[in-house]
């Protein structure tokens, strides 16, 4: 589904990603871990099409299309979803209005009829249950004044509404207490299916107790330096990142 080959990216001339290779197949869950500043969020941003990052080398194909060639909105319409590390507060734009615009633009792109008000509300009600989100939040401005947990739940709720094929969760677990983490993970797990894939970017092994990954990759200094199964995450939890850094630094010397 997603194939990343030798991806290099930089911001304002500073290289951040230095040759990422990754294959993600339908039905798989990949966790990307790594110390601060290793390029985890950059990878997520590059995949979603954030303009500040310049791809200097490499290619990314998604469902056999050149992903890097698409605008951010077309990536979303093709089925890439980025759950933001820091969801943006947008005063004056109501959550409902925003969602209806988004859902219908995505549907239009996919050749589906727009949802009328009744069907849209039914869909909202159905998906709200997934993340136990309060309807009152939806009548407010998008993310404005939401707590950290509410913002993250709202991300997963949007993900449920847009039905992406590839979901990228960028540190969605950061800052969540255990109840919120459980709710968010539960939502993600319910949305999993054989024709969808998930990339979980995280700092903490804890999330992977709830969202079980098929593969774990360690990103360090802009490269994937180690890949394994969920046991790798446990090992990282126990031993930290230093041994990986040492191994990687040795390899480059």
């Amino acid at each position: 589904m997603l194939s990343i080959k030798n991806l290099h990216a930089s911001i304002e001339g500073t290289p951040i990603l230095k040759g990422i290779n990754l294959e993600v197949k339908a039905g798989e869950v990949h966790a990307i871990m790594g110390p601060n500043g290793s390029g985890k969020s950059t990878l997520a941003s590059v995949l979603a099409g954030r303009e500040e990052y310049e791809v200097t080398q490499g290619e990314v194909t998604f469902k056999s299309k050149d992903l890097l060639d698409l605008s951010p909105e077309d990536r979303a319409r093709e089925g890439v979803f980025l759950a933001f590390q820091y969801p943006v507060e947008i005063p004056g734009v109501s959550s409902t209005n925003f969602l209806r615009t988004a859902v219908n633009q995505v549907r239009e792109y996919r050749g589906q009829d727009p949802l009328d008000a009744v069907k849209f509300l039914t869909l909202i009600k159905e998906k709200m249950k997934l993340v136990e989100i309060d309807q009152k939040l939806l009548s407010r401005s998008l993310n404005e004044g939401f707590s950290g947990g509410e913002k993250k739940r709202n991300e997963i709720f949007q993900m449920a509404m847009l039905e992406p094929t590839l979901s990228i969760l960028d540190e969605t677990d950061s800052g969540l207490d255990i109840d919120a983490l459980r709710i968010v993970s539960n939502g993600v797990n319910q949305l999993k299916s054989d024709d969808k894939a998930t990339i979980v970017v995280t700092h903490y092994q804890r999330l992977l107790d709830y969202i079980i990954p098929d593969f774990v990759h360690v990103l360090y200094n802009g490269k994937i330096v180690k890949s394994g199964t969920k046991e790798l995450a446990l090992e990282l939890e126990e031993k930290g990142y230093d041994w990986i850094k040492e191994e990687a630094d040795k390899a480059t010397v």
Binding site: A48, G49, R50, E51, S71, P72, E73, R75, A76, R77, F81, L82, F84, P87, V88, I90, F98, T101, A102, V103, Q105, V106, Y109, Q158, L162
Partner: peptide
Amino acid sequence: FYLQARGIDK
């Protein structure tokens, strides 16, 4: 960018 990432035209 947030709006675009949700499929809304720029």
